[in-house]
Write a protein that binds this DNA or RNA. Structure first.
Lengths: 350, 350
DNA sequence: CTCCCTTGAGAAAACCTTTTCCCAAATCGC
DNA sequence: GCGATTTGGGAAAAGGTTTTCTCAAGGGAG
């Protein structure tokens, strides 16, 4: 009966501590710590014995204690207001990926559009001494409902509007649009239309401008983009407008759509009118939402924003910020890529 | 110039500690702690003065230190292998929701189907002293690629196969199927077909059995379910099989689909054949994936698995487990609900 | 006027690890 | 053989909070 005999709970015995390892190996905790961390000086034999003891006992250092001392928790917060959306998932996966490889865990915080909830989460993260915060949202041109500008920890913005002077990563929407329109040009399409989402979105304008630019560069006729909604229904409507007029000669031979849902609506509407895709008209979408792009008939060529990569880069950027590397503030645009399926056909010579 | 004059880093001054609050208020840290936590005995005036001081200084207790002492981190891990999938999102939102309300933060851990990655994450979570773990996946009938059966912390399984003896929450697929088929019966449909996903999914069988049961209960003819894939293309194919035969009398007047994508394929295929939905044939989907259900023409009636609620319940279950409440092990099934849109028509008398 | 009890508050241990300093023994140079 | 240096390892502080004792002062009872 030692002095500290305890009833010992039936289940879930407490984790083994460094003190116990040290005792079992017959050394002090200081020596044990140094042995396990490769620090200090001691005989190789001692070091090995301690390590073996730790392994046998299943010792795992308590991160809480380590963090308290090191003032570094190896934890970051991921703030999003797009829990249900489709953009946040690949982005989150990318973030998580980049960080896990570096031994960092991610707090997931959904703030909806609720300022109070946002404040709550940020404070909780700060209390838990996160090393940094990644802010992400569902729209590039909107702020999260919470102010992150004067925190004690670095912040990186991904796919959401950054605060002035902060580090932000977004997709290069204009570049993505160029990719699509230039693809059409290469294929010999001459009358290229553009059907996109609501005017209130900044990306709509960025993509439309790139569309005009490319057409101009290629000396092709530029038609005013048709702006509407991000829906299939709008795709149908737009086809009615574009292909409603009598003269078949005036019809476009290509439609660049602002997202995949619009593109799906366009393709369905064209089929219903007996217009062939890709033979009569080529169609390209945006977002490369596989579940949509692969279900259209024919499968949809689409611009992919590489959101997973974007998330990954955001994670790495935050990491270097946490590490003390001063990052250049401002918005960095990451390139999109074109995923070619069958809705555009082959080039004339191909 | 006081003794502890520091150069004071330009940015990011360190957080204020309890010690500083105590000093500022002219009391000991012990008293300060008790004042802020409503513990101990002191004059109301002292308590208020300390609180005011803390407020003024913007004091926030260091969670790391608290957790170290209390052996409770107010943190849980959410393990998933469905980062890209559509089921995990509402579920995660529900979990996060339930826990945030209780001051608990959530570690998001995506393990794909990688055992090594899973092990890594679980160990990281354990090292960080999470209070518990929620495991969730993309399939009810599959295990995560990692063993959670003998952890030091409680585990709750949501929408994934639980270990024996553990507590699991899943949707009541059979009940959901009943909802759909009974809805058809109420509307007076008599020849109800069932088109579902691959045979390898347990839910496919659960739903098919419920389908047969309901038909039998209503004395209606039961056809063998058509099993294929979870895709629109399979919906098209299935329509060809069901409506290919000559005699219009043998055609179904209702199709219950295993998911919304199949249902979408079915509806599109029916329209292409000139068969009216809902006039000639009623269609019900499963999952209530709004982006699909609202884009079909007409909008799709569908079974919703209430995943957000499922997540919420999982969070609460874990919380009570963490609190020491012994939860009944085994699988708890949560009811689905039918979201009625326009793909079924009104009852004969309505 | 004592004695006892209550009140208000502080000292110190505890949580677990890391790191700096320090000390004793062993080794080396001469 | 003696001082100087290296080697191997330990003691203790630090990190921020909570909690259990402890203690002094004050008040009431007898």
């Amino acid at each position: 009966m030692s002095a500290d005999a305890e009833p010992a709970p039936v289940s879930a015995k407490p984790p083994v501590t460094l003190r116990e390892v040290a005792a079992a190996a017959g050394v002090s905790v200081a020596t044990a710590s140094k042995a396990l961390n490769g620090q200090g000086r001691m005989t190789a034999e001692t070091r090995e014995r301690i390590r073996e003891t730790a392994r046998l006992l299943g010792f795992r250092p308590n991160s809480l204690a380590q963090s308290l001392l090191r003032k570094r928790s190896f934890t970051v917060g991921l703030l999003t207001n797009d829990t249900y959306g489709r953009f946040s998932l690949p982005l989150m996966a990318g973030v998580s990926d980049a960080l896990v490889d570096n031994g960092v865990s991610v707090f997931l915080c959904n703030v909806e559009d609720d300022t109070r909830l946002g404040q709550l989460h940020v404070e909780a993260m700060l209390d838990k001494r996160v090393d940094g915060i990644i802010a992400t949202g569902k729209r590039i041109d909107r702020h999260l409902p919470v102010d992150l500008s004067n925190l004690r920890v670095p912040v990186v913005y991904a796919f959401t509007q950054p605060d002035p002077g902060a580090v932000g990563l977004v997709s290069d929407d204009a570049g993505g649009a160029r990719l699509a329109v230039e693809h059409f040009c290469r294929l010999g399409r001459r009358r290229i239309a553009h059907v996109s989402g609501p005017e209130s979105f900044a990306v709509v304008h960025a993509r439309a401008q790139a569309y005009r630019d490319v057409l101009e560069e290629h000396g092709l006729p530029t038609a005013e983009p048709l702006l509407g909604a991000w829906s299939e229904a709008w795709g149908h409507e737009a086809v009615a407008k574009l292909f409603g007029k009598a003269g078949r000669e005036g019809w476009p031979d290509a439609v660049f759509c602002g997202n995949d849902q619009i593109a799906r609506g366009v393709i369905d509407a064209l089929r219903e009118r007996g217009i062939g895709v890709p033979d009569d008209v080529g169609v390209i979408g945006f977002d490369n939402w596989e579940i949509v792009a692969e279900a259209t008939r024919p499968p949809l060529t689409s611009v992919d924003m590489n959101l997973s990569t974007l998330g990954r880069e955001a994670g790495l950027a935050l990491l270097s910020l946490v590490g003390g590397q001063p990052a250049a503030p401002g918005i960095r645009k990451l390139p999109c890529r074109l995923v070619v399926r069958q809705s555009c056909g082959r080039p004339p010579g191909g």
